[in-house]
Design a protein around this nucleic acid. Structure first.
Lengths: 194, 194
DNA sequence: CCGATTTTATACCGACCGGTATAATTCTTC
DNA sequence: GAAGAATTATACCGGTCGGTATAAAATCGG
């Protein structure tokens, strides 16, 4: 009952996601959001709470819709395929024509004012979650003999995540997909072979 | 003639540099700057013009005082040493205890509002300048037989810069120097040997 | 048609943004 | 000491920030 809302909340969240992706958390104003969504401020606050809650919803949607490859890649049978699929997946998401450049998490993670420290902490934590999951996967690979006995799973995970974050910077600076693909190929030469 | 200024402009610029480094261009307010410098707004504007000019001065100082290693590294005799010195130099700057984490250029480069597009363009351009200089150096190495004939200098330069940018994200997320050193060692395994 | 309920649109809030006008203060030079 | 030049402190500018109070409009069950 009550007056039905005149916009699709899911579409609006997608718009918010793309704006945050392109312009970062603090770089995106409420006016940017309402203009993009085609709704008014009370509608935004009534539907999504406030800017921070809206960002967190957008972040969750981003992880579900654009970072799903990460958790799929972890299930690949060997560590090299895990690593390659993750890097390729990041590059695909970061250089998709219809998407903003780079990575929402990396874009939003960088410098921020004192007012956004909570968002910054969340972002750093999300990166750590992925990195630790990858390290556990590589540790399993090491125990399975899939990685050399003298390899360091945490260092390898950090290496893969670092390359992924570097590609995000490249992509948001305008690098093309093929160029970044070749970069992934170079990086994979560092990865130990089973 | 005239009343002498009561603060050291060089010290003030250093403070601005560190604030911009830590919080980014838009994340640093004029009040942050004047409070940190211990001066008033008219003094800031009288000495440095405006926020954008102050940032550009800080950026220039950053490149001179913290990125000098880059141009020195380009003069190393062989390509592997060039690459290694550049990566080590970046890590050193990004993980210096007394410095803010990460890289001022990378931190400031990420997401930004429409109002800061000019700054964003400058930042992307500074990255490109370094990357192209490195590609030229690797091209010379290739001609000198210091890199394999089938290697691609531009791809190698992009790889090194990408790892450097990735380390900046790691460092501004709190990674320690030794961890990032090991990451550089892994990355260097990808680099062709003469 | 009548509340009850929910979403709209408009107008507004205090705080802060980058930037500046005004005038008092402190110096050098004559 | 007076004139002139430069820096200081204070107070203020319009604009935008994130967020909200108020009330009109649109739907429901009765």
């Amino acid at each position: 009952m009550g007056r039905p809302r005149e916009f699709d909340a899911d579409d609006a969240l997608q718009t918010a996601l793309e704006l945050f992706w392109r312009k970062g958390y603090e770089g995106t104003s409420i006016t940017d959001l309402t203009d993009g969504m085609g709704i008014t401020k009370p509608s935004l606050y009534g539907t999504f709470g406030n800017k921070e809650e809206l960002f967190r919803m957008a972040l969750q949607r981003y992880e579900e819709n654009y970072m799903a490859f990460f958790w799929s890649a972890l299930e690949q049978p060997d560590a090299r395929t895990v690593a390659f699929d993750i890097l390729r997946g990041f590059v695909n998401a970061q250089t998709e024509e219809c998407n903003p450049g780079g990575c929402l998490v990396v874009n939003a993670a960088r410098a921020c004012s004192d007012a956004a420290l909570e968002i910054h902490k969340t972002i750093v934590e999300r990166i750590q979650v992925g990195q630790k999951a990858l390290a556990r996967r590589f540790d399993r690979a090491k125990r399975e003999g899939d990685l050399p006995a003298d390899s360091n799973p945490e260092d390898l995970a950090r290496f893969i995540m670092t390359v992924a974050q570097g590609t995000a910077v490249q992509a948001s600076s305008g690098a093309g997909r093929d160029e970044v693909y070749r970069l992934v190929d170079i990086a994979m030469k560092s990865f130990p072979r089973s």
